[in-house]
Design a protein around this nucleic acid. Structure first.
Length: 508
DNA sequence: CTAGGGTTAG
């Protein structure tokens, strides 16, 4: 009865019934009520009921655990399973699949092999559910052997187990193994295909991804979005937009994931015309404008040159988060409106939103574009002392740029010599641009020497070196800098995603 | 009454 109301989403009716039947309450009615609160994101209420229960069973615990997972509280999960042990409740398949999934990408993932041991003791390793979550766990730990072994232990493998195997191999960078697993999958579904396509994309094999995508007999909104986003992440913005148009022609309905990616494509190729059309599509499709989608719109308008439209959408976001603020501050910085950028930063602080590294990159670059030296220095110092954010190489680059543009080449030089990083091509690029701007041959040589010492180089650096001797426009260098900054970011991501030693398994 | 696989923003 109570569960009927919970299923229909009528939490109040469920609670009413629950409160009335004090005498005939059983564990199931308590659990149903807790389920209702968890489903509707009322964790405190769920927790309260759980604490009030006269007798708790494993389902009560599992429900709380899934609630804690939903609000991303792995620490709470950890304490809850300890508590479970003290009460003497034996965890079941549900418990383990929830707990393992909740520990993914957290510091608690080191416990996953230990949970695996417990699972073996309780003879739960043959479960498909436990098995596939364990597979995600070993993937998270970058343990290929574990991944394979857990898969083998699953008694009756279903398509989800196979998909977890494909995904695991792809996450580990083993595209050939993933492909083999895909071929061996008995009943491939659209998820199997999409996992493979997305895996090729994250492993930078765009052509493989595209040819596979074209062979798909069935595509859903996720498959389309994966392909669109794949092109966006690889800077093939026009391709992304073309795929989106095919998607619309096919009659598939885009969702907020799709639109976020498509808007990023518009931003990437600075197409205000297309961006506006996508915006009207968002409205036409009746997409709920959540924070993420709205922020994508803000960013698109800012990058396509319509900063006022960006601002007006930004203002319309009821619950602006850190990314939204970063987006508008970055937008103002890009448009050279340093004062407005700083004003938004102050407003962000007033709203109690904590800044992060990106915030300060944007703030500092606003200062550098606006020639606000003291303000830039102030924020550069404040980011560590007041906000506890360590300055990264990107922030130093902004400061070098700031001093350089203002003609304070000695200050820039001093900063480079004193910074806790080896200067990279981007730093030298910023410095060189300044040397070019102020025709400083002497310091240009200092930079040239620095560049020479780097293992990696960049053609843009040479073009700037040559620029010191005259010619070319100033705007060219700004563009080159941006490009290098972006590439630095891409390289960092790539290094995190797949270590080289895993590459050798891949013959293609 | 509780659980596993594919997609979003700076």
């Amino acid at each position: 009865m109570i569960n009927g109301y919970v299923r229909n989403g009528d939490l109040n009716a469920a609670r009413k019934l629950f409160d009335q039947n004090t005498s005939s309450r059983n564990v199931v009615s308590w659990n149903s009520m807790i389920t209702g609160y968890v489903k509707h994101d009322h964790m405190p209420h769920a927790q309260l009921l759980f604490d009030q229960m006269p007798v708790r069973d494993v389902v009560s615990c599992n429900t709380i655990l899934s609630g804690l997972y939903k609000i991303k509280n792995p620490e709470g999960i950890y304490h809850s399973i300890l508590q479970m042990g003290r009460i003497g409740l034996r965890p079941n398949e549900f418990t383990f699949s929830i707990v393992i999934t909740a520990f993914l990408n957290t510091v608690f993932n080191v416990l996953i092999p230990q949970l695996h041991g417990l699972i073996l003791c309780l003879a739960l390793n043959s479960s498909v559910f436990v098995g596939s979550s364990l597979m995600r766990g070993y993937t998270d730990l970058r343990n290929c052997e574990g991944l394979h072994q857990v898969f083998d232990e699953i008694l009756v493998k279903d398509v989800t187990s196979w998909n977890a195997l494909i995904l695991g191999y792809m996450d580990l960078g083993l595209t050939a193994k993933a492909r083999r697993a895909f071929e061996l999958t008995p009943e491939k579904n659209v998820v199997s295909w999409t996992t493979l396509v997305n895996g090729y994309i994250t492993n930078k094999k765009l052509n493989e991804a595209w040819s596979l995508f074209n062979k798909m007999s069935e595509r859903n909104v996720v498959s389309w979005t994966v392909m669109i986003n794949g092109y966006v992440q690889n800077d093939k913005f026009v391709c992304a937009l073309e795929v989106f148009l095919s998607m619309l022609r096919s009659g598939a309905r885009p969702n907020h994931f799709t639109f976020s990616s498509v808007l990023e494509a518009c931003a990437g190729c600075s197409s205000l015309l297309m961006g506006k059309q996508i915006h009207s599509n968002v409205l036409k499709f009746g997409m709920p404008l959540d924070v993420i989608l709205s922020t994508s719109l803000v960013d698109m308008y800012a990058k396509c040159g319509d900063i006022e439209a960006a601002f007006s959408i930004f203002e319309s976001i009821p619950k602006k988060n850190r990314v939204s603020w970063n987006s508008i501050i970055g937008g103002y910085a890009r448009h050279g409106l340093a004062t407005r950028a700083l004003e938004e930063f102050e407003r962000m602080m007033k709203c109690g939103v904590r800044p992060d590294e990106v915030t300060f990159v944007n703030v500092l670059s606003a200062c550098s574009h606006g020639g606000l030296i003291e303000e830039g220095e102030r924020h550069f110092n404040l980011m560590g002392t007041k906000y506890g954010i360590q300055a990264g190489i990107e922030h130093y680059t902004c400061m070098v740029d700031l001093y350089g543009r203002a003609g304070h080449l000695e200050k820039a030089e001093k900063l480079i010599k004193g910074m806790p990083f080896e200067p990279d091509v981007v730093v030298w690029g910023a410095f060189l641009a300044a040397c070019g701007l102020y025709s400083s041959l002497e310091l240009g040589e200092f930079a040239a020497e620095g560049v020479y010492k780097l293992e990696s180089d960049h053609p843009a650096v040479y073009s700037m070196l040559s620029k010191i001797h005259g010619e070319k426009g100033v705007w060219g260098t700004v563009f080159e800098l941006r490009k290098m900054m972006k590439e630095r970011h891409a390289k960092k991501q790539k290094a995190d995603a797949k270590p080289e030693h895993l590459q050798e398994y891949d013959p293609t």
